[in-house]
Design a protein around this nucleic acid. Sequence first.
DNA 1: GAGCACTGC
Length: 711
Amino acid sequence: MGLATLPIHAYEAQILETVAQSAVSVLIGETGSGKTTQLSQMLHRAGYTNTGRIGVTQPRRVAAVSVARRVAFEMGVRVGEEVGYSIRFEDRTSSRTVIKYLTDGCLLRECLFDPELHQYSVIILDEAHERSLNTDILFGLLRRLLGKRKPELKVIVTSATLDGEKMSDFFFKCPIIRVPGKLFPVQIFYSKERPVSYVEASVQTAIDIHVREPPGDILLFMTGQDEIEKTLLKLEEEVRNLDEGSCMDAVILPLYGSLPPEMQARVFGKPPDNCRRIIVATNIAETSLTVDGVVYVIDPGLVKQRQYNPASGVDSLAVVPISRVQAIQRAGRAGRTRPGRCYRLYPEAAYEHELLAATVPEIQRSSLAGTVLHLKSLELPDINILEFDFLDPPSIEALEDALSQLYIVDAIDKTGSITALGKKMAELPLEPALARALLAAEELGCLDQALTIAAMLSCENIFYQAPRQGKEKKRPREEGKLPDGRGLGDHIQYLQIYDAWERHDFELEWCKENGLQIRSMKFARDVRRQLSQIMRKKKDGDPEPREVSRSRQKLGNARAIRQALCKGFGNRIAHRLPRHNAYRCIGHKSQLVQIHPSSCPLEVDEEGLLPEWVLYHEIISTTHPFIRHVCVVEGSWVEPFLTKIDNIDIQSLSGRKAVNSAKQCEDAKELPGEQSSSQQVGGSTSGAKSAASLSAARERYLARKQSKLNK
DNA sequence: GAGCACTGC
């Protein structure tokens, strides 16, 4: 294990000198430079751990764990002693720990309880070029900390790409250190034009390589599970049609996030001799997972990407062109072990002129309700959320949308200040709507059930999506075995499923038999345990890691829990069209939607019509706009929100009416029906005045709906 | 007869 062979060692003196002289430094180190494992050790040797810890953030849990293990090994210590890591559900650090690897989300959470990050003398934001939402927030927080409060703190930002200028400019034009990487050259080939079908073109390219080129595995990027399965079938057919003995054997392997771990593992095992592997993967192979042995990369230049539209509240999941940074990253996957080749299925001109230089950072593609609540809960003086220092600022619309969301769930008051409820919500590792529902459930006496639902909604893909068989359109599905949600929707079904699993002693085999993703169910259990502990600690300050007891009450029509959910999702309500099984959303710009096909069956009346009112977890636009994860609610529960939504004053929420805000506060106190942090959960709004305004709001809503229907 | 990239607290 030649440590001396890492490129970064030649730069040790330069790095230490720069760090000594500047509070912030940007280190650009391409793949294989050794920055992730060596930088922390260099600073430790130079004495930076005498005054505090060195914290190194990673965007992914596995990276934090594996890098900590590696560094502990190199330093000859055990993990959890001088070198440790901290990720959600697992803190492997001790009082002796001086080098701590942690996920960026974990550091952000530490900020909640210690905004000045007292334990650290150095913070290294690693892989900052990935621009994860959490890293971007940390950028802004650390910039404040350095500028105003903690000049002795050293911050180092590392990036694998050459956009270091931008980061340096952001951090007061700090010095940039460049360290070369250790990748082998990758020859790039472009197509003359974009193919009509990139699946077809990819298959042809893979077969060409397989027949003509020397040994080496092929990595092919596709956009999703369906597409991967289609590609696998075509590749298998083409390989079968090759003349026997004309070339070596081929094994074709899929790789995507929801693939069960034992299937993913096939990609990391040793391939049979004299056999070429063709790996068809999503973006997961771009950064998260590294496949050894890849020499050829086929890049159709596309990715499936989520984007949130703050004007409509709709998330879209669309296939879009990758950025040049992504194209370079994908090509680099061919040069890890020896010189490689990358086949881009688009023209060079498209690469130069059509692709964005860098991927739109996550912070500009996400709902910011959780982020804004987090920042508000830090209660930094002189902070105005609309003027927070972002490396790439989100749009005003996105920030205003976040403020509106927070106001509707009572996390901030009408002047934009965080409420007592909002502070409690910020401490829960949940999106604000779910945090609000959990707190409402506590008041309504159904916390136990809400914990389960929140935990189940925290993981994607509860159900295992088996690959389609042959040309079958429909996926094989376990029918009739699982509870059905009693016609009340997905939330209730999740609750029933989790309870059933618990009754089967959390057996993993039971999950398998019922077509549930073991990974997701385990995750839900961990989340539930964590949420339960936080709620208990809040209630009686009991830090013991005990779970809230599981009461065995009858579920019935689950009225209380559905009401509690409604408290968090009051602006994610859909109303059924008259005599049609389609819905119109209220809250955001009203929008026609259908219930997502993955939803469990809802109760229908004698005419086959679905329930009039449902709440939904999200609107996701794929082929159509769908509402996903729905729960039957009652019109009377929804009414208070209609008023509140109607009365939103965004100028006031965003603090732009600061001059008048004192007067408005007084007004607010006089209105009995006005929602504020002091309003009781589950309590009814009282007073003739508010009742009148409620029905007025409902009329306005109905009128609006009518006028839209008439168009 | 539909449909869901990848992370993280």
